[in-house]
Nucleic acid binder design. Structure first.
Lengths: 222, 222
DNA sequence: CGGACCATCGGGTGTGCCCCTGAACCGACC
DNA sequence: GGTCGGTTCAGGGGCACACCCGATGGTCCG
């Protein structure tokens, strides 16, 4: 550690993505004062993707909540398109699920909008240099999620539509049990298992037990 | 962000775990100067566990590489034993696998031993306050691992026993392709796909394409 | 040249999975 | 009492999967 870093921001090129023009103006003023070049601005997912593709900036300052899919969607599209770009999430939210979601999508840092101008300049310079930058406390969310301590809770109205018995069968199926094994485990016939599985797949709009496994494991139900 | 933090270290109690007595002495001198209380020292896994259990410190400064299992082993044992304790890893190593391993085990931060005294005091105060603390650049390893960018590389003699064609088929199967789709993709007949899949399953000692999917995803081959 | 290993196919068999229709029983609710 | 939803089960069909047997070429090597 302790490599000398150029934190002046000189010659860095960034794209600012936020759906509030006022905020973009503020960010631009603060960071241009430090010598950072704002190559482009964008206010939604579509324009952000093209702006980033055209400008090829060193860093993208990216709002988390935006019309058209949010910051994570921008990152996914850019990632598919090719060149590696560094993203620094910039959001009013300090919610764990926002932080985790955007980091999982590939952002190299996350700072809240209460950040000061000089701090933002410093943060941009650091992510450009390869560091990860977080507002204090927010980094902990990522660590917790990484260590499996917290779960990204989300409502599951789909899951609610399943009956008790269907959930029971689903758990076993998702865990890799064959129909025959589920039947033996629950003291019912294979035909009944088939009925329940069909109901589960239909209600969850899935088409195979493998998708069910994936669905359940995404929700940490197994 | 920007909550006022007490970074003086006043009244904080820590346990220092490191197998080098000289280094423990240095750490103790530096942090006691700032008002931090060193409740105990330990030089191996066994003594660390009992020292931490007895002293119940606010923070444990923990060496990563130690005789008897290393810092991760200490954390696992303490975690099993009950009360939540905050660990700050302190290591000469800046290797990604060390950082990832210790964070995955539950540490709230990772700093290298090249850190200065005041910086260490600040780091201790911050982890005690709930923040995550990293030496610059090291945090990026965790993010990469979290986003699935890097892999914890491991040799795979099993994988070597597969022929080129078998690996090709395996990749598609593991990704969820049906035999029919694999056949179309590789311009071969379904029967040939079956042959290759059979070989792959036999060589890897698996019994179904689902286990193959799991096997492959464990090794990040998909 | 004769084996080895590999990739390419075929036929056949058994099983698992998924869906369909249909039906019986039970409890809850109107 | 009738209706509805949940649970239980049966028969049958279509497709995917995993295995068995075999065969044909090709390369590479001793």
């Amino acid at each position: 550690m302790n490599e000398p870093l150029d934190r002046s921001g000189a010659s860095l090129r960034v794209v600012v993505v936020d759906d509030h023009a006022m905020f973009r103006t503020g960010v631009r003023a603060e960071i241009e004062r430090a010598g950072i070049v704002v190559a482009a601005e964008a206010e939604d997912v579509e324009s952000a993707v093209s702006a980033i593709t055209d400008a090829e900036p060193d860093v993208v300052l990216l709002d988390v909540h935006m019309p058209g899919g949010g910051g994570a969607e921008v990152m996914r599209r850019i990632a598919r398109r090719g060149p590696a770009t560094t993203f620094l999430a910039l959001s009013v939210s300090d919610a764990a699920e926002d932080v985790i979601g955007i980091i999982r999508a590939g952002a190299r840092g996350y700072v809240t909008k209460s950040i000061s101008g000089p701090e933002l300049v410093d943060a941009v310079a650091r992510v450009a240099g390869g560091d990860a930058v977080f507002s204090p406390r927010l980094a902990g969310f990522v660590l917790d999620a990484f260590a499996g301590t917290i779960e990204v809770a989300q409502v599951d109205e789909d899951l609610d539509r399943l009956t008790e018995r269907e959930r029971e069968v689903m758990r076993l199926i998702a865990r890799g049990y064959a129909y025959k094994e589920v039947a033996k485990e629950l003291f019912i016939s294979i035909k009944t298992v088939e009925t329940h599985v069909s109901s589960v797949l239909r209600k969850l709009q899935l088409s195979s037990r493998h998708e069910l496994t994936k669905w359940a494991s995404d929700r940490r139900l197994i």
